[in-house]
Design a protein around this nucleic acid. Structure first.
Length: 261
DNA sequence: ATGGCCTCGGTTCGAGGA
């Protein structure tokens, strides 16, 4: 038994349709046998969830899907308990939250709303949604000191998380209210796992399908893993895996992986 | 350039994403 075997890996990936991306998810898990993988944008109802294929790959799965839009899942090599769908403090037609307890950790998988544009109803929905998430996690962290919040946040926390900050002024994902909401989550004694470590510049987790965004590295870092202090203390690495973004018919997002010792 | 791409639902285009 070497030290690698004792690591616990948590990952998140917005797959932009699990129906289209299932072969890539299975391939990625074969190459990256993480302990937990949070998925967003399933875009399918629960009846269509490919449970047999996921289980054949060695994973349990819990999921909360809907037709066409949204939908989230947690895949885990370990047993899951206390599954929670949606934020109990926020009535929501969208399926954007699923949580489960795994090996004593509270794993919260989120697909935070996009917001569309700063003057839209969808933006005010995003901000109300973020406030409710904060209020819920504040309570949840009291009973689960080992809490991880993984997902597509649709927020680039700082200008260094944006390929061309000037081009994004006035857009959603980078506005002060959104960045304040991100800092409010950090203020729940959580750490952005990626920023706990030295990283190269211009590392992103999403690239526009248009204009050859990936080739130009025209991206944003909007997929995050936040860890409460108890888990942050165990975190030894956090990386973005650009490999599947280079595959044929990729998701526009890349997986993010945190390693705990 | 109110663009460009991708997915879905449902038909050959609009909505939504980011």
């Amino acid at each position: 038994m070497n030290s690698v075997d004792n690591n616990f890996k948590l990952a998140t990936w917005n797959v932009n349709s699990l129906k289209v991306r299932l072969p890539q998810v299975l391939k990625w898990l074969e190459e990256n046998p993480v302990d937990v993988l949070c998925l967003q944008e399933l875009k399918m109802v629960d009846e269509k969830f490919p449970l047999a294929e996921i289980e054949a790959a060695g994973y349990h799965a819990v999921f909360s899907g809907q037709k066409t839009y949204n939908g989230v899942a947690i895949l885990s090599r370990h047993a899951m308990s206390d599954v929670q769908k949606n934020n109990p403090l926020f009535a929501d037609d969208h399926q954007r939250v699923i949580a489960a307890t795994i090996e004593g950790m509270r794993i919260v998988c989120v697909y935070i709303p996009n917001g569309q544009s700063l003057d839209s109803d969808k933006f005010s929905y995003k901000m109300r949604w973020l406030q409710a998430l904060h209020d819920w996690l504040k309570v949840e962290a009291q009973t689960h000191p080992q809490l991880a919040l993984l997902g597509d946040y649709n927020i680039a926390p700082e200008d260094r998380d944006v390929h061309d900050p000037a081009a994004w002024v006035g857009m959603t994902h980078v506005s002060e209210p959104e960045r304040n909401a991100f800092r409010d989550l950090l203020a729940l004694n959580m750490k952005d796992a990626f920023r706990m470590f030295d990283q190269a510049e211009k590392l992103f987790s999403w690239w526009d399908y248009r204009q050859m965004g990936f080739r130009r590295n025209a991206g944003l870092r909007i997929d995050h893993i936040l860890l409460t202090q108890a888990l942050a203390d165990r975190c030894t690495e956090c990386v973005i895996d650009k490999v599947p973004r280079k595959w044929e018919q990729p998701s526009d997002h890349a997986p993010v992986i945190a390693t705990l010792r």
